[in-house]
Amino acid sequence: MAQRKAFRWHIAVFLAPAVLVYTAIMIVPLFGTLNLSLFNTGEEGRVFVGLRNFATLFGDPRWSASFWNALGNNAWFFLVHMLVQNPVGVALAALLSSPRLRGAAFYRTAIFIPTILSFVIVGFVWKLILSPIWGIAPGMLDAVGLKSLFAPWLGREGTALTTLALISVWQFVGIPMMLIYAALLSIPDEVIEAAEMDGVTGWSQFWKIKLPLILPSIGIISILTFVGNFNAFDLIYVTQGALAGPNFSTDILGTFLYRTFFGFQLQIGDPHMGATIATAMFGIILLGVGFYLFAIQRRLRRYQF
């Protein structure tokens, strides 16, 4: 028998800092939050209430109405991203990767610029542009004879959420574009040339050869979009404030959590209900990620070239 190996200290040393910081600042608070959702403030301080906070969140009409409103808005927010951001990103990447395209580097750099800007900038810039006071948007519509189409989109209940979602799409379209672009570049030239020889060119080349090969990347982008969207907060907070107006029509889970936890106007903050909402968000994200990992990712083949 071989001698039992001595404990390899260096492995522990290499792992320790990352694991400690990550555990202490991320995992422990995450479970702390889950735990906090099981308590509430009673007469003699904090009391264990089991799942009663969840009963309140889903059962009490005042809470549940807000929650479902936020969840529904969030789902729409996500849907707009899936339907606009990702297809546009894929299309831009496909164009960028066309052979011998001049200026590809310039387009790539320029289209990615909104992604690096903070939500504060993005939110205010668009608020100004869409503002009826300044008149840039109506002025431009006027120039193409469509002035009648203009409305204060951010101020109307019916259009505010979709407008915000599109602003967010504008900001983040660079990410799917870059990732898909990278995936397209990783398809070997010879495979594309073989397709040319086989007469598979242009659009049919994209649908029959390239798209199947980049599906795994599209899958990853979708799940990243999902996590990002159900965790969004900043853009709405910056443009519409914590009240996610008009009349909560742009309220999503992130703003709902913020308001509940910190309070607003007359209502005071409630850490326990805040933790309950965070736990619900945790559950939703977990469900989505689980669904992706078990139902979708398994069916996506990754190809080795």
């Binding site: 792992l15 990352a18 694991v19 990550y22 600042i25 991320m26 995992i27 422990v28 608070p29 995450l30 479970f31 702390g32 939050t33 735990n35 906090l36 799940i223 996590v227 965790n231 907060f233 992130g254 959590l257 936890f261 850490p271 805040g274 933790a275 965070a278 736990t279 968000m281 945790f282 994200i285 977990l286 990620v289």
Partner: peptide, 24 residues
């Protein structure tokens, strides 16, 4: 297992722990 544990944070946003982080 350690790899998976550390990768968990890619999918689960740290913001969800904010309540407890602030208390801490």
């Amino acid at each position: 297992l350690m790899g998976l544990y550390l990768a968990l944070g890619i999918m689960i946003p740290i913001r969800l722990g904010t309540v407890a982080i602030l208390q801490m």
